[in-house]
Write a protein that binds this DNA or RNA. Structure first.
Lengths: 251, 251
DNA sequence: ACCGTCAATATGGCATACCATACCAGTCCC
DNA sequence: GGGACTGGTATGGTATGCCATATTGACGGT
């Protein structure tokens, strides 16, 4: 009970919210293996919380599709099959297309300038071969397009899908050799935005996402047989992380 | 509030799932006023369950957007503003458009025949002035189109939005005088499906939904002033939710 | 030797008790 | 007389204990 005081320093957002954020983060960042069990007692002990907030957090994550709760058998990290992936990716592309159309109409010159800046930042990372930053900026651009749509529901559902796809999206980025074409598509998207051609931008974006995920599917099928190399408990270092952050996410 | 006992006899799918379904049903069917508080103890007593499963159910419903949980202040039935409504409806139209395109490609002759049957059933209800059945069959048709898309994620998100819109959707149906045009639009949708013209069907459907919701907005603004059967407090508390959206970047 | 069944243990589900916080009312001081 | 502060009460948040169920390993029968 020593470290409980550390937690209680930020009693504002509620414990379950913290636990949920923490688990969400780790699942999304692929620190937990898909299919891995999440036993309540041990996890609760590791996180230094009791089972009740943990259970409620798991219910939230289940509603978000990140974990699966099997009746009387506990929670496991959601295992998203490649076909699920493709379906989700399709919906994602539809949403982003719609977002692009809205964003095109709403974007100020200032917004477009910011997109251009991000775009060239990403291009820089691309040229340097800096996949980490490329990936991050890429995500940022997509998120901003959706944010610019101004449609809260659209933003919410986009986030929902992104969380489920983040893990594999990242891995896909690590592997793919088709960086170059993806970059070219981004150029086209930017051009459409600058021209404020909503329809074209939507189509380019949807096409871009479609290709990206088709590519992923190919990569995945290739490596599927030799997967699951590590059992990976991956639950150390937890005690410090839970309480310190999560005061304000956002941005 | 009596019927939970029937449910509680079967401990099969878990109590929280039952409580969640029960509350979801009642919220969606407009048996609870938007903004109405859901005090844990009294509700738990009424439902003959303890607070723990009720709390977990509320967390699920919060993740589904049907209730709002205010930190340290409890849960209230989500109050969806007209602008929220329109945003959600827009996303709904986008999803159904996409679903229609997929469905057009996948529908068998048998499926199309079934749609025609439903369509004429609906037309019958229309002519009889039977709004109840008209509404039900209408929903059924839309749901089947989405189901036919074969995309589980699309179906899921469509259901998610429908639950949030059901209440007002129903009320809108009760009031609107534009039945006739809606019926005509359905005719056009059917025609496109029969012709297996995916693009046209998508556009017709999206247009149809767009009009429906525009119409709703007009109706709602007209009756908004006199539409408070209850004092409807808790309208002030909408700004601070514990929900942490906007995760998708940052490493 | 193998399969089926039973029991033991581990784990999730639910209830309840306790604690923290927010809201409200009453009083006291300015 | 009004405003601010403080104590009480109502309500949500968290912890824990007990019960139900599922899984697994061992033993006995075929």
């Amino acid at each position: 009970m020593t470290s409980l005081d550390d937690i209680v320093q930020t009693p504002r957002p509620g414990l379950v919210a913290k636990v949920a954020s923490y688990l969400r983060e780790h699942i999304v960042m692929d620190h937990f293996q898909p299919g891995q069990r999440l036993p309540e007692r041990t996890l609760a002990e590791e996180l230094q919380v009791s089972r009740t907030p943990l259970r409620e957090a798991l219910k939230i994550l289940a509603a978000e599709g990140l974990v699966e709760i099997l009746p009387n058998r506990g929670a496991v990290v959601a295992d998203v099959s490649p076909s699920d992936m493709q379906e989700k990716a399709y919906v994602l592309s539809v949403l982003e297309q719609a977002a692009a159309e809205l964003a095109c109409a709403r974007a100020t010159d200032r917004d477009i300038a910011e997109f251009q800046a991000l775009h060239y930042e990403m291009k820089a990372a691309f040229i340097r071969g800096d996949r980490q930053n490329y990936f991050r900026i890429n995500q940022e651009i997509h998120n901003r397009i959706v944010a610019l749509s101004g449609n809260a529901s659209l933003i919410e559902m986009h986030g929902y899908l992104c969380r489920q796809l983040y893990r594999v999206r990242y891995l896909s980025n690590e592997k793919s050799e088709k960086w170059t074409t993806a970059m070219a598509e981004h150029e086209a998207i930017m051009a459409a935005l600058e021209a404020r051609d909503a329809t074209r931008m939507g189509e380019e974006l949807r096409n871009h996402l479609g290709k990206t995920w088709f590519k992923y599917a190919a990569d995945h099928r290739a490596t599927e047989t030799e997967a699951s190399p590590r059992p990976a408990r991956a639950t150390e270092a937890t005690n410090t992380t839970l309480r310190s952050d999560s005061s304000g996410d956002e941005a």
